[in-house]
Amino acid sequence: MDVPLIELSGVKKSFGPVDVLKGIDFKAYAGQVTALVGDNGAGKSTLIKGLSGVQPYDEGVVKFAGEEAHLHSPRHSGALGIEVVYQDLALCDNLDIVQNMFLGREEVTQGTLDEGSMEFQATKALQSLSVRTVKSVRQKVSSLSGGQRQTVAIARSVLRNAKLVILDEPTAALGVAQTEQVLNLVRRLADNGIGVIIISHNLADVFQVCDSINVLYLGRMVASLKTSETNQADVVGYITGTKTMEGVA
């Protein structure tokens, strides 16, 4: 296979005496959806916070598109094209979709906000994801459903020319139909050549949409599997620690 979009080798992170990440190896590819699963406390959030630059790793090598990268701050990660969509989505209810998608990077021409240009690009970004559930890009976010909000948050990362989008529990708060919508959206994101990492507790979702599954157990990567070559029972085994890589190898 070609060069991974992101490659972690021997990544470690500890908080005082607690070693949260004990030497992680991890790869994610452009155009693929990579799942990161594990029980609470396995180190998923810490791994993601390192990628987003919020909490840099203590040790280990990070390669982005084959080149060594130093993710010291969210700014570094953002510049490389790494975008994280957090569970709470970080949207302003009182602003409309365009305003939210351009929040913090508004386009200004002749000293004032260029609403037309922003509206155009926001619409394009939503179209590129074949979004059909949004009627108007000038709707206030307060009037959107949970799935639509998730859509806006994901489209925002597309707008920022993200190369790697990390989704934290994207379907946790959604109903069946909306989960389906969001999973389709995730698939299209990958089909557009973006690397996607999904953190999820919902294995049904993971098996439906992900190309590969990585299991964290107490700070170690205990399994990196192709979705087509494994099943839910095995993955549950790795998550709960009753199964090890050697056991199946």
Partner: peptide, 18 residues
């Protein structure tokens, strides 16, 4: 724009780099 954003959701505004 940022004033409205901070008034609507300060945490979202902060994460957006405001």
């Amino acid at each position: 724009r940022h004033l409205y954003a901070v008034g609507g959701n300060p945490e979202a505004a902060r994460r957006a780099g405001i």
